[in-house]
Write a protein that binds this DNA or RNA. Structure first.
Length: 580
DNA sequence: GCCGTTTTCGGCCCGACTGTTTTCAGTCG
């Protein structure tokens, strides 16, 4: 029997859509079940296809959140290539719910209502309906709803088909490693915004050298992820991937490889500035190399190109033409924090609130990923939906942390769990737990989860009031933005950075792929002001420690060094930096 | 649909906020 290969994210997407349709039909409890299974599957390391081939349906049922019903549907997908229940729902509601519900404030119920009443199937249709002012006439909707939807659509358009780095990077790495293994391939570099580790990615540029380019092109065009081939040839193959992005494979000769890698890594402004330098030196720079007249003077290695222009090679994260070229000229480039430099993680959530795993599981996963310490920072009671901790439960949590630290010691595991909190900052800037509780923590983060729409002045004062508290060590995700979904709340960031310096408060670089908050520009301001930062995963499950890489990239793009990031330091030194 | 130190039925995180209401539905986290 034919086996239909589906990747975990594709399976998760189907389950999520089923959940949305059931939610719209006001079915009780089932939507949660499908959603939960989808989230688990999305985060699994092992592909369900492999798991199923090895252990059959029984193996699927062992996944937490997957029971008989969902396992049967996944089996149906593998054996027939489709899920009947899903297709029935899809026929009933031929709607792109995933796209529509990506708009802030739009859930499945609204999406389906708009389809039933106005025939809206996607964002394009929604935009037409808003422009014709049809939405405000529907019961339950009004003028404000139209405004909000319009705002959401603007966000969607601005994102212009770009994807979050954290969403696509695992797949890109997989493709890269497969190409590296081909015997026809001599070198592979993924360039563009991915190499610069930008927050979002528009397309994927892969450069290779090869003596048999057509064989590689054939392989590339036939990969499982490819949904469409635009063109295939000796030097360039262009495909559409099921990630929703296009990928280009370019074959360049070894003598030009460095120049091509430089050229395709960008960014555009950085390259323009380099070419201007070349012109001033009487040279010409393009993707084939650096030329004096017709003579190639650099091209094989990227370093050589920079050197010939009188510059030191610089990490791609810096290449934005915002001062890096002048700095490189003077030989004063900062020694950026390295991707392996973090020793700890100061924001993690556990099953005590909205995390998926236990304190012990999180600690062991952190240890396995090379960390020496983590802070357990579950939400506080104001976030009732996460079952946030109150004064009593947090004390119980401390007892468990003490017990685990002792256990690790006995097992000779060099790892420390810190007692922490993600304490909610209330509307007036006061904190969700009393000082007598917070003062007993090892490390306390505080953050905003409500009243995003205060005036700039009120929001700034609110944060300052929290920062003045001696028990608040770190402000988590300081601006509250969600990339491609929600703007930062109004806040005077310069005032906040100045106040952080004055009060000795740490500002977080939240590494969650859709937050990356502080953004690079603000990181750079912190570095300039001497405000220390932490890079935290905000992990809600054991698989999230990988997010730290995106946070480090963010810090590097903000010119941060080892010295600026407190959790790159040994535990003792880190703790001494805190206010308490 | 899933799950089980409440174990094969009967629960299922639940309160705040917003915009629409005139007592509530939908979304968020």
């Amino acid at each position: 029997m034919a086996f239909h290969n589906f990747r975990n994210y594709e399976i998760a997407k189907i389950l999520k859509e089923i959940a949305a349709f059931l939610e719209a039909e006001k079915v009780q409890f089932k939507p949660r079940a499908f959603e939960k299974a989808a989230l688990t599957i999305e985060e699994m390391e092992e592909e369900l296809a492999d798991l199923y081939k090895k252990g059959g349906i029984k193996a699927l049922e062992e996944i937490p959140g997957v029971g008989k019903g969902i396992a049967e549907r996944i089996e149906e997908l593998f054996t027939t290539g489709r899920v009947k229940d899903y297709e029935r729902l899809k026929r009933k509601y031929p709607v792109n719910v995933g796209e529509l519900t990506s708009l802030e404030g739009m859930g499945p119920k609204s999406a389906i209502k708009l389809y039933k009443k106005l025939g809206v199937k996607n964002i394009a249709g929604l935009e037409k309906a808003v422009q014709a002012h049809k939405i405000r006439t529907l019961p339950g909707f009004g003028e404000k709803s139209e405004e909000k939807i319009l705002k959401g659509i603007e966000f969607f358009k601005k994102s212009g088909g770009r994807a979050l780095l954290g969403y696509i990077l695992p797949t890109v790495r997989l493709i890269e490693s497969r190409l590296k293994k081909l015997k026809e391939v001599e070198a592979v570099t993924v360039c563009g915004s991915i190499r610069r580790m930008q927050e979002t990615v528009g397309d994927i540029d892969i450069l290779i050298t090869s003596k048999k380019p057509l064989a590689v092109a054939d392989y590339f065009a036939k990969m499982a992820e490819v949904t469409h081939v635009y063109g295939k040839g000796e030097t360039k193959t262009m495909v559409r991937l099921n990630l929703g992005l296009d990928a280009d494979l370019r074959v360049v000769p070894p003598s030009s490889y460095g120049a091509a890698v430089q050229y395709f890594s960008g960014d555009k402004n950085h390259n323009i500035a380099l070419r201007e330098i070349a012109i001033k030196k009487g040279l010409k720079l393009n993707e084939y190399g650096l030329y004096k007249g017709n003579k190639l003077i650099a091209g094989e290695k990227e370093e050589d190109v920079y050197k010939a222009l009188g510059l030191k090679w610089m990490p791609p994260e810096l290449r934005t033409n915002s001062g890096e070229i002048e700095t490189a000229k003077n030989g004063e480039l900062p020694e950026l924090i390295g991707y392996g430099d973090l020793r700890g993680d100061l924001q993690t959530q556990t099953e005590w609130t909205d995390g998926a795993d236990s304190i012990e599981e999180m600690a062991r996963a952190a240890s396995a990923s090379g960390l020496e310490y983590i802070a357990i920072t579950d939400h506080t009671k104001r976030l009732a939906m996460t079952h946030g901790l109150d004064e009593k439960r947090i004390v119980k949590q401390w007892a468990e942390i003490d017990k685990l630290n002792l256990k690790f010691k006995k097992q000779n595991l060099k790892f420390t769990i810190l007692k922490g909190s993600e304490c909610d900052i209330l509307k007036d800037g006061s904190l969700d737990l009393p000082d007598k509780v917070l003062s007993q923590l090892d490390v306390c983060g505080a953050s905003v989860h409500s009243h995003f729409n205060l005036s700039r002045k009120e929001q700034t004062e609110r944060l300052k009031k929290a920062m003045v508290n001696k028990n608040v060590d770190i402000i988590f995700h300081p601006t509250g933005r969600l990339i491609q979904r929600r703007d930062a709340y109004e806040v005077d960031i310069d005032e906040i950075i100045g106040f952080a310096k004055k009060t000795g408060t740490i500002l977080e670089i939240n590494a969650s792929p859709d937050r990356l908050d502080l953004k690079d520009e603000y990181v750079r301001k912190c570095v300039a002001s001497g405000v220390k930062m932490s890079i935290d995963s905000d992990a809600h499950s054991v698989s999230h420690f990988g997010f730290l890489e995106y946070g480090i990239a963010q810090a590097r793009r903000g010119w941060a060094t080892h010295d600026d990031i407190i959790n790159a330091w040994p535990l003792d030194k880190m703790l001494k930096t805190l206010k308490r």
